[in-house]
Design a protein around this nucleic acid. Structure first.
Lengths: 343, 343
DNA sequence: CCTTGAAATGTTGACGTAAACATGGCACCA
DNA sequence: TGGTGCCATGTTTACGTCAACATTTCAAGG
């Protein structure tokens, strides 16, 4: 795990002393210049800056962090950063953190070791951060995470909601909107391609779909289960396409919706004339497939911003704030894949 | 910028001394336990681990970094992490770094300040990293980057190739393959939707397209210029769709290809019967649009892996290695958007 | 030319860790 | 029973920075 950390002492660049010597001042004066203190005569400041330039000096962040007790960095925990939701949220977090003067470190939490003292071992893993944002903890639970004592945390992963301050998209309302939209168009029922059953967002969307149908007095058909990938949506779509009774499908995310779209094309079923589709997420490409995908958009950038805001509140207060949950609204975007059912 | 770094001293968690006191041993013994040294009696080790657990101790990474001269972290510079290529490469980098015991910090290089001593100021920006990977430096040049002296670097951004060790996809061969494929199918010419003209990858792909056509004795038609987004591909597509002479289009990336696909649909031009399309990148969704997109796939994971490998070589050698350039092959993946031209 | 005081600069020390070196204890063998 | 040597543990020190406190410089007014 820590091959890097245990490597021998490295030669590091020039230190504040070297600069001081070259500029003919004390180290403290160099420090004042590099922290932007005002109490330095312009003449002196220039001498110091020249010396810095000449030596290629940059302050040692480790020493700074040790001295100040802060790292100027936020940890971000997520698996598979390339996924749409993760990538967009990450971008939002990075942008917001940058605006606040923090950088973002992609933290790898150690896999649960099998030895008895696992929690201590896990805690030994990297954490050169002032706080931790968890976008997706995969199978980790609040117990297995074994976070260092007092580390501020903010989460978006619904598995951890209730344990830590959380920011989540309003998936329930979004799902209700999606199903409601299809019902209002006149569909008799709405089928569902769900996320994996061990996924909380998946279950939330599925439950909301079911509830909305039941409220309309409709017995929900058995949902098909996918794994978020377009491939799984395609596979599910092949089965749905074979059933002429299917006129409307709510997909738990956009990727699966696109897989479904392809399956319907290949089966010769027209979208939206014969079958309507609603996705979830609002990925950028949804607008440019044909027909453009009707979807429930999440505001990932806002989620990222809010996560950072919530985390920095704790960092600055030097304490975990009381459990809090912020809901970010979702928005139904009606495009080209929904229409009234064939008469 | 450094509001975080200049904040006052923070209370930090328990230190190695606290653990030592509680366990009734010296600090050095605690250190030996936390670094996994073998020279500790099992009995003692357990006492220490118990004390760690009790106090919620985790080693102070800043002190470790200061002591060892290494951070156990790699910097990753990129703008807009949510873009396909960036996100996938990032994922590859993170995975490879993790395997080597390094974490990844998303570095923000300071915007060029307008003051005279810009380079020194820029150098002051965060760099608690042992090396830097530049995926995309946007408008930065080797001069404006003003990297700290001796910081190992590896780049994938073709703008910086030649200045630093680089890993790039073989876009030229990929483009030649794409155009060649279309010509072999019998198309008389191949149109092109290019990337923005200030983009090196864009220019590389465009030049290779042009060269391949000229080698076949064909005068290249004027390319349309996009900005990598599906929207720009859609806009370009509307113009191409209006020209009945267009039977084959090579798009500089997949997003634009999908935008083009939609435009052709809307114009009633059948793909691939009337118009063939080849994209570039190999995004996951390409396989699940209809028809599945023929494209030139980049091996982003391999690029990420190679970047890390190349960077760590320098980190371990404590020096910049001689300029080096590794080319990662691309692969033409023929799917459903290419066919012989209408007769 | 001296006083006064504010501004500029210097000195000291502590942050937490781990390498290097120092010491102490115990098993094993003659 | 007295070495002999290795293994476990303790002590010292330096890593680079910056706040707090100490000292020097210098301009302005008498």
């Amino acid at each position: 795990m820590s091959t890097a950390a245990t490597a021998g002492r490295r030669k590091v660049g020039p230190s504040i002393e070297d600069v001081a010597r070259l500029a003919g001042v004390s180290a403290q004066t160099v420090s004042r210049v590099s922290t932007g203190s005002q109490r330095v005569r312009p003449n002196t400041r220039n001498r110091v800056l020249t010396a810095m330039d000449q030596l290629g000096y940059s302050p040692n962040q480790a020493a700074r962090a040790l001295r100040s007790g802060t790292f100027g960095a936020l940890g971000l925990l997520a698996y598979r950063f390339e996924r749409t939701g993760e990538a967009l949220t990450t971008q939002g977090v990075v942008a917001a953190a940058e605006a606040e003067g923090y950088s973002v470190t992609l933290v790898n939490v150690a896999n649960p070791a099998s030895t008895g003292w696992r929690s201590a071992a896990a805690r030994l893993s990297d954490q050169a951060v002032d706080g931790l944002i968890i976008i997706r903890a995969e199978t980790e639970t609040p117990e297995t995470l074994a976070l260092p004592a007092g580390l501020p945390v903010a989460v978006s992963d619904s598995r951890l909601v209730g344990y830590y301050p959380a920011v989540v998209a309003d998936q329930i309302q979004g799902s209700i909107d999606a199903v409601g939209h299809l019902l209002e168009l006149g569909h008799r029922t709405v089928h569902h391609i769900a996320g994996p059953s061990n996924s909380d967002p998946g279950n939330l969307r599925r439950a909301a779909w079911q509830r909305r149908l039941e409220e309309a007095g409709i017995v929900p058909p058995e949902p098909l289960v996918g794994d978020w990938t377009a491939a799984s949506g395609y596979a599910a779509g092949q089965r749905l396409a074979a059933d002429p009774a299917v006129t409307a499908v709510y997909c738990a995310n956009d990727e699966m919706a696109l897989g479904l779209l392809r399956a319907l094309y290949e089966a010769g079923r027209k979208v939206p004339d014969e079958v309507s589709i609603v996705g979830f997420d609002g990925i950028a490409l949804g607008e440019f497939v044909y027909p453009p995908l009707t979807t429930v958009a999440q505001d990932y950038a806002e989620i990222g911003r809010t996560l950072v805001k919530m985390l920095l509140e704790q960092v600055r207060a030097q304490s975990r704030v009381p459990q809090e949950r912020v809901m970010i609204p979702t928005e139904l975007i009606v495009r080209g894949t929904t229409a009234p059912p064939p008469s």
